[in-house]
Simulated scan of single mutants.
Amino acid sequence: MQTNPFTSLLEILDDWWSKNAVVQAQRIGNGRVDWVRHREALEYLFAAEDFISGFEDRAEYEELIRSLWKVVIVPEAKWSQSAVEPLSTENKTAMRSLGRLYRFEATRSPLSLSDEDRECLREALEEMREILGAVPENFHEDRDRLIQMIRECLELLGDDEVDLVKLRARTNEAAGAALPLAVVLSEEDREHFLKAALRATGTWVSNTTAGAVGGVLASGAAPLITGALMPGSS
């Protein structure tokens, strides 16, 4: 089972706070600083930040992330003299809520993707990326952002051990970002583009309960494909 970065980081911080600890509080026999726990805290923080980066409303968590970095790094004072200040009650509550969300995402993720599913997902993403070349010049900023999302998905697919929770989040984020761009494509390109996006999210829907983004895409794609949501349509 995957380690929950939110609850694991809170456990470390609670341990430091309970001892009124400093960042370098734990030492080994010969007097050298033992950085193992601090390294673990950093790894969990990176993982937590990466998980949040997939949220559509990630900007709302910026203050939490800044507070966590300040607690773990303590940049404004000497390492050996800096007490670890507790998070606010609100941020602790947010961490516990995010921990529950992470646990839910992990438990609903399929244990594995078959070779066929992986190839289907890769082909759908590559087709989306190819069609994005037809996006008009004045929409290139949104196009480039979506291409970057697709690139991240393809990189994750290429890993020996695929992070399925992260890959699903990135896939759904990319599929959700596809809808606004679909309306600026030609009718033929729009149909192929949205069908590819549906195949991408369908990789996960076929294995587990559909996520919110996949559901929105599925409900919105049909009228887009038929042209019902195009400007000037009735």
Rank of each mutant, 00 (worst) to 15 (best):
Pro5Tyr: 07
Leu10Tyr: 04
Leu10Asn: 08
Asp15Glu: 14
Trp16Tyr: 07
Trp17Val: 13
Val23Ala: 02
Val23Thr: 04
Ala25Val: 03
Gln26Cys: 04
Gln26Thr: 02
Trp35Val: 04
Trp35Gly: 02
His38Gly: 07
His38Lys: 02
Glu43Val: 09
Phe46Thr: 06
Glu49Arg: 07
Ile52Gln: 06
Phe55Lys: 05
Glu56Gln: 09
Glu56Met: 12
Arg58Glu: 12
Glu62Gly: 05
Ile65His: 01
Arg66Ile: 03
Ser67Tyr: 06
Lys70Leu: 13
Lys70Thr: 14
Val71Lys: 01
Val72Trp: 00
Ala77Val: 09
Lys78Arg: 11
Ser80Glu: 15
Pro86Ala: 02
Ser88Phe: 10
Lys92Cys: 11
Thr93Ala: 15
Arg96Leu: 14
Leu98Thr: 01
Gly99Arg: 03
Tyr102Thr: 06
Glu105Asn: 09
Leu113Asn: 07
Leu113Glu: 06
Asp115Thr: 02
Asp117Phe: 04
Arg118Trp: 01
Glu119Gln: 15
Glu123Tyr: 05
Gly133Asn: 14
Met149Val: 04
Cys153Gly: 10
Leu154Gly: 10
Leu157Ile: 10
Gly158Gln: 14
Leu164Glu: 07
Lys166Pro: 08
Lys166Arg: 14
Leu167Arg: 04
Leu167Pro: 00
Leu167Gly: 14
Asn172Cys: 10
Leu181Glu: 05
Val183Asp: 11
Val183Glu: 09
Ser186Asn: 04
Glu188Asp: 12
Asp189Phe: 06
Arg190Pro: 07
Ser206Thr: 06
Val213Ser: 11
Val216Leu: 07
Leu217Ser: 11
Gly220Leu: 12
Leu224Pro: 04
Gly227Ala: 10
Gly232Cys: 10
